[in-house]
Every structure is written in structure tokens, then in C-alpha cells.
Simulated scan of single mutants.
Amino acid sequence: MSPDAASSPALTTLDLPAVLDLGYSFCPNDTFIFHALHAGLVRGPLPVREVLEDVQTLNEWALAGRLPITKISYRAYFGVMDRYVALRAGGALGRGVGPLIVTRGDVQDLNGRTVASPGALTTAELLLRLVFPQVNVVRMRYDEVMPAVARGEHAGQPVDAGLIIHESRFTFHEYGLTRLLDLGAWWEADTGLPLPLGAILVRRDLPLDVQRGLNAAVRASLEYAYAHPEAARAYIRENALEMSDEVIQAHIDLYVNPFSLDVGAEGERAVRELHRRAVTVGAAPETGLPLFVG
């Protein structure tokens, strides 16, 4: 979609594609939520076709408007609000869900040091910069961060610490790493709010009834997963990137919660506060657009 898509007329029913590409990650929380919709066990306003990618790739694709409905980091969402709006269902917010900073040894102040990051557009890196504004980062795919910290380097660059997300919070001890800071706990203590991590976006030029229908379909997909937990098990395992069954379940239990069914008033406040802070540090533009589908 072109950069001026937000100012172009909304699509009509005749303009809509036969199938909507739906982007989400390989992570168990996403495959758990979207399995029923992907498999046709619940119906939306239009059929969907899965597009599985890591979250940083999805973030980058959203900048280009590549997918009509996609998972994205909230940090990245703040840069594409002119063309996308967030669904109320399917996202990742909560308490105790934040990214961690891990090190090989006794490192306290990361200002002036180099941290391995899972991506410039991740909520994790925004939080890192809010706490340590003078940090240096070297970026890589999220599953490469812990090995890089354990080695102390990546592609010839020194690495003093790492910013870990997803299932890495359950496995960093296996790399001999120690936790320096839980950024989610820092956020909760500082704001009293749950931490917004990821959202499901739809294009703003889709008709409002389609946007609302997609929100209802994502919620129905999650409700189906709760009611039939065995239905998605093989699909989740197929995409879980060498996780044990215990880690898979811990991942789902942590990242899928009542905020995934509906962001709610408290979740909205949390997203607005994260956006306000991103604006303050120059990481996001101001906006008067609604952040969620009405």
C-alpha cells in the first residue's frame, strides 16, 4: 500500500480480495490464538491465509503495508498508525510478560555498552532505551541473541548483554546467563499498568464492518482454542522451533490472557502511555487517530 493510503477512500466490498493474508509469528501464543481461524474452524468476514514470519520481519513488512492483517510489535505500530488500526482481540499485553536483559556476568550500567537486540521496531528495544538511553545495540533475530551474549560477540562486534523476548525468558539459564533487569517489571513498577507487547493490526482502508468482523473472528478463534486445547497442539508443535512441551505450555500460559480476548480499558491506557513515552523520546509521531477498532 502506498504511503498516502490513509488519505485514500476506503475499500468497497467489490474491491476486497477473495482471501486476506494474515501474518503472525511461529510463537506458541500466536499459533494457539490463530489456529482455529487458519484451519477454518471459525469463520471471519473473509477467508484468511496464514503467513508465518518472525516478528521483526512482520514489523518491517507493516512499514511497507504488505499485509492486510498482521501481528506487530506495539513499538512498530506507532510508526504505521496512518495505515493500520489495532484489533481489540489477539494481542499480547499483560503483567510478568516483559523482555529481559541478560548478561554473562556482573554488569550493572549498560549506558555506553553494547546490547544484542531482536530489532529496532520491537517494544523490547524501546523499553531498553527508556531505561538506558545511551546504550549501543547490535541487532539480530531474537533466537540469535542468547548465543551471542554467551559468546560475547556477534559478527565480530562485542556483545555485553542481550535483550531477550518470547520463550527465551524460560531458557536463558541454559546458556549460563544471568538476568540483569526484567523490563516488564520495571514498566509495571513505573506506571502501574500492564505492558503492551504486540498487537494485531488491520488496514484502516478496509470497511469498518470487515474490521469489526475480523476482530470478532480473532476472538472466536481464541475462544475455540480455550474450549478445544488439543485441536491446535500439532500445529503449535510443528511451528515451535525446538521448544519442549513444557516451554510451549509455559509460553501460552504467560502470553495468552484476558487481554488477548479484549484489550479492555486498562490495556488501552497502557498502550496510550507507551505511545506517549515513545513520542517523548522521538521514537513515534503524535497522532489523533483512534488506536483500536471501534
Rank of each mutant, 00 (worst) to 15 (best):
P45V: 01
L195M: 08
G152C: 14
R169P: 03
T191N: 11
I165T: 12
I33C: 02
E144F: 05
R141F: 12
A62F: 02
S260G: 05
E246S: 10
F292H: 10
P147D: 15
L195A: 01
T122Q: 10
L201V: 04
A86K: 01
E53S: 14
L127R: 07
P229F: 14
G23E: 00
R151I: 15
H35K: 04
A150E: 11
T57Y: 05
S244P: 11
A5Y: 09
G198R: 00
A240L: 10
H154I: 13
I33V: 08
V97Y: 04
L110P: 01
P207M: 07
V247M: 11
C27N: 07
V263G: 01
I252C: 09
G176A: 15
T280V: 11
A76P: 01
D205R: 07
H35T: 02
D106I: 09
A5P: 05
E286G: 07
M140G: 04
S168A: 15
A5S: 15
D143Y: 04
V263A: 12
V51I: 13
R276D: 13
V293M: 03
S221F: 04
I248V: 13
F34I: 01
A227G: 15
V135Y: 00
G105L: 04
E125I: 07
L37E: 00
R66C: 05
T280K: 13
A250G: 12
A278L: 02
H251V: 07
V247P: 00
G98E: 01
L163E: 06
E238C: 14
E238H: 13
A161W: 01
V293G: 01
E60G: 02
E125H: 07
E273Q: 13
P47G: 02
V51Y: 04
P258W: 08
P229E: 11
D143K: 12
R276I: 06
I33S: 00
R169Y: 13
D21M: 05
S25K: 02
L241N: 14
V51S: 05
Y175K: 12
G105Q: 08
S221M: 10
G96L: 09
H173Y: 14
D262Q: 08
A231L: 03
V138P: 02
A270F: 07
G94F: 00
G176E: 11
V55S: 02
H35D: 06
N239M: 09
L63N: 01
A76F: 02
Y224D: 07
Y77N: 06
Y226T: 12
A116N: 05
I248N: 01
Q56Y: 00
L222C: 09
R179F: 13
L183T: 06
E242I: 14
E286L: 11
